[in-house]
Design a binder for these strands. Structure first.
Lengths: 397, 397
DNA sequence: GGATCTAAATTTAGACTCTATATTAATCAC
DNA sequence: GTGATTAATATAGAGTCTAAATTTAGATCC
């Protein structure tokens, strides 16, 4: 048998150089030809050839010639990454709320939409709500589907490296398996599923407390503990997407379950009120006790509420300690609904933490608020776009 | 200012293709030109050009032309990875024993040497012993230092991604910091430090129970628990090399410290003997109780010893559970001195494990015995060689 | 032994991308 | 306008690849 030889000419070098140049341009501002020569080590001829390619593809725009550094000589050609060459979506499908962020290719938010979902019954209903929210976000910015290059989607379930949701529960499997496919059918862009805590870690590293930190854990600490783990800038998934799963907490002394800060505060607040022997401001409040009320009461000096927060701090410290010791992140970021309130707990958490390990991680509170997952989802989509930039066809508005 | 242009022509494509071809050849047997064309997708002209390069560099040898598949036509040129183009060392510097493995570039062991070290006092002494063991291994195979391309070295301390040992203890820091530098001075080859449990994970994935497993944890379970974690084929290090550190076990219910299987078995055996009310074969044995004796006694039906092993199994299951849940490996391999004995505990461990998680990892016992770290160290060195192959100068014997 | 067949090696031509250098162009200062 | 300066453009040349034509080494058949 005669072997037929390879047919297509892979313009490998050109591809490599185009990727390199696009990388430089995408996280720098306006750059001159000379600047690119210095940044990439390539020749001027090559830089111009590649830039012309990138311009014709739509990834780069050329500005009027001008001068940045010197005031003499022929003005430089000036190139800029075309951050409006396309858009990405960051979608957080939470239990109670679906959030959609539309961002340009620099990650700047262009539009935002949200829907609170109280009681969703079927996979179809859920998908519909997500779809509506997306349509709203796109419409408010005047962006149409063909301009969207990818969507990152965070779900509260294990997701493996390939974006497959892996849960045993039949209902959720049907819901989630259908979701990505359905959204792609409806809109045409690729849907990249990822675990919500993992996206939170991406978000924190990108635009949160974890900038320049490559070994990072994010602890979502609201109703239930969940964690996203990043080692050397890479998210951990484990074999079935289960990395970061916190069920082991039931084996941890002084923790015992995966209940988060809000839940514990609320439960203990309610328990205190239920005991007539306990004296606390909380009793004077209407309706069922909320976590916020406990934090507020502690802020105004209520001894019982303070005691609850002490307990919560100790408990949280144990959770952080286990993560900190086994994974050795440089930083653990506390996120979720309670993040801001948890700021007051930081000193206590750090104090407890020091009793568990002599090399504790830094602990910080997320400043991304409830956008922590959707911001990470945007980053996830951007990563995909950067990876596949030279294979994507950009469509003008 | 005029920008001077890049000077050197980087033969990037050729490098890429050479790497690709070398990769194919290094884990295949004899290959024909045609076979390489099919494996790489390159043209015959390119394949031959690159092969000629690799032959002149020493990485590949050409055999007499022959035919493998068909019996007609012109015989093929036949190429083979030159597994004796150089050698690597895998060194395990354990508490009690230093083991040195000399392997060829396919990883086949060529020589082996070991030294038991009872009481070493100074960093210098330790280095001397390691050096002696290396010299012995090299001599017994007639290999000289210039033929050695790299050495992987496992130590029982945190090691970061760059091979730096990070311990607070001043003594160990001096010892370890000096070690790599000193060995390189003495022998000339690069020394790649890595944590011993991490190397164990590399070893298991390469030649142990973890073949074809990319998400893997190795639990060294002898005297003290230690773990090496691999996610998607990559070892975890954490920010200060501390990933896999087990001190969190002091927070785990039913565990409480990092004592390993051997230590617990021995301690509980001794405690049983110390209690005159307890009836056990162990009492009839001379000298202090050892872990082996407890396992043997259990094998012969001693109730007390069986009870101890039950306890050890439950305890180990908790350790495996925490790793399995948080990190979600496909497989947890038990390694260390007790590995073979622990085989008997597997059913019990798995039974307990199922009570902690509904998706437990597979659990297996290492078959690499006390070579688990040194085999991993060989793999670590081979990884380095593969990575840097085209930059290394091969020296003939 | 010589013709014939096959598969692979070798040769040759051509395309592409890069570097390096020479030439041209645009702007400012005087 | 002239000269200095800096960058763009054009040109030449070196490498590396693909693709197609040609040659070669052995097996088979008559």
């Amino acid at each position: 048998m005669t072997v037929t030889q390879a047919t297509a000419t892979p313009p490998l070098l050109r591809r490599v150089n185009a990727g390199k140049l696009l990388g430089v341009l995408s996280n720098a501002g306006v750059m001159t030809g000379t600047g690119l020569i210095q940044a990439t080590g390539l020749t001027r001829a090559t830089v111009h050839a590649v830039c012309n390619d990138l311009i014709s593809m739509g990834w780069v725009v050329e500005l009027d010639p001008g001068r940045d550094d010197t005031a003499v000589g022929r003005p430089s050609r000036r190139f800029e990454f075309n951050s409006r060459a396309g858009y990405v979506l960051g979608i957080d499908i939470g239990d109670a709320k679906t959030t959609v962020l539309l961002a340009d290719l620099r990650g700047e938010t262009v539009a935002k939409a949200g829907r609170s979902v109280s009681d969703v019954k079927t996979p179809g209903e859920r998908t519909d709500i997500v779809h509506e929210t997306i349509v709203e976000a796109l419409a408010s910015a005047g962006v149409c589907d063909p301009q969207v290059l990818a969507a990152g989607v965070g779900v509260a379930a294990p997701v493996d490296r390939d974006g497959n949701i892996l849960v045993d529960d039949e209902f959720w499997r049907r819901f989630d398996a259908g979701l990505a496919k359905r959204l792609t059918e409806l809109h045409g862009w690729p849907v990249l599923l990822e675990n919500d805590a993992n996206l939170a870690a991406l978000g924190e590293q990108w635009r949160g407390e974890g900038r320049d930190v490559d070994d990072l854990a994010v602890l979502l600490a609201g109703e239930r503990f969940g964690s996203g783990l990043m080692d050397s800038g890479r998210l951990l998934h484990g074999s079935r997407g289960g990395a970061g799963e916190m069920v082991y907490l039931k084996l941890v002394e002084g923790v015992g379950d995966t209940h988060g800060i809000a839940r514990i505060a609320r439960d203990q607040g309610a328990a205190a009120v239920a005991d007539p022997a306990v004296d606390t401001i909380l009793r004077t409040l209407d309706g069922p006790i909320t976590a916020e009320q406990v934090f507020t009461a502690a802020g105004s000096g209520d001894e019982v509420a303070l005691g609850i927060l002490q307990h919560v701090a100790g408990r949280t410290a144990r959770v952080v300690a286990t993560l900190g010791i086994l994974f050795n992140p440089e930083l653990v970021v506390l996120g979720g609904a309670v993040a801001q309130a948890a700021k007051a707990l930081l000193p206590d958490i750090e104090r407890h933490l020091a009793t568990f390990t002599s090399t504790p991680p830094r602990v910080a509170v997320s400043s991304l608020g409830d956008a922590i997952v959707s911001v990470g989802a945007v980053r996830h989509a951007l990563n995909y776009v950067e990876q596949h930039a030279l294979d994507l066809n950009l469509k003008p508005a």
